[in-house]
């Protein structure tokens, strides 16, 4: 039987839910769909502060950026706040090129992202 690979790990801090993306590459439709199905229930219907940790991610495509926009809209609808952290320099370049670094709040690590929510 094929082993299911976790797409995220989740822990709950005092003022936020912290989601760590566990895949190195985020490309496939299945990856993105699985991520969306894992994250959306965490933020659906209530005011949630979410920190997304990209420390493990080495490669992603524009399709993932679309998912991040959808997550951002859902959190905004519920008056929550969204923070990203752990983005390596290559991935950060993608955010800069697309100017998404100007609309997303990006921190070095989860600790700093959580501090920003206090």
């Amino acid at each position: 039987m094929e082993q299911l690979k976790p797409r995220i790990s989740v822990y709950y801090a005092q003022n936020a839910t912290v989601v760590t993306l566990t895949d190195e590459k985020l490309l496939e439709d299945d990856d993105i769909k699985a991520l969306e199905e894992s994250i959306m229930p965490l933020i659906d219907g209530s005011q949630v502060n979410l920190v997304v940790d990209f420390s493990s991610v080495q490669f992603l495509s524009s399709a993932v950026l679309g998912l991040l926009i959808r997550i951002s809209k859902k959190i905004s609808e519920n008056k929550g706040r969204l923070k990203f952290c752990g983005i390596n320099s290559k991935i950060f370049d993608i955010f800069k090129i697309t100017r998404l670094d100007e609309i997303f709040e990006i921190y070095d690590d989860a600790k700093k992202a959580l501090q920003s929510l206090k």
Partner: peptide, 16 residues
């Protein structure tokens, strides 16, 4: 990257 386009889910492939 312009205006409201930045909030759209798609349309970044050609730019990249």
């Amino acid at each position: 990257r312009s205006g409201e386009n930045i909030y759209k889910a798609g349309g970044r492939g050609v730019l990249l």
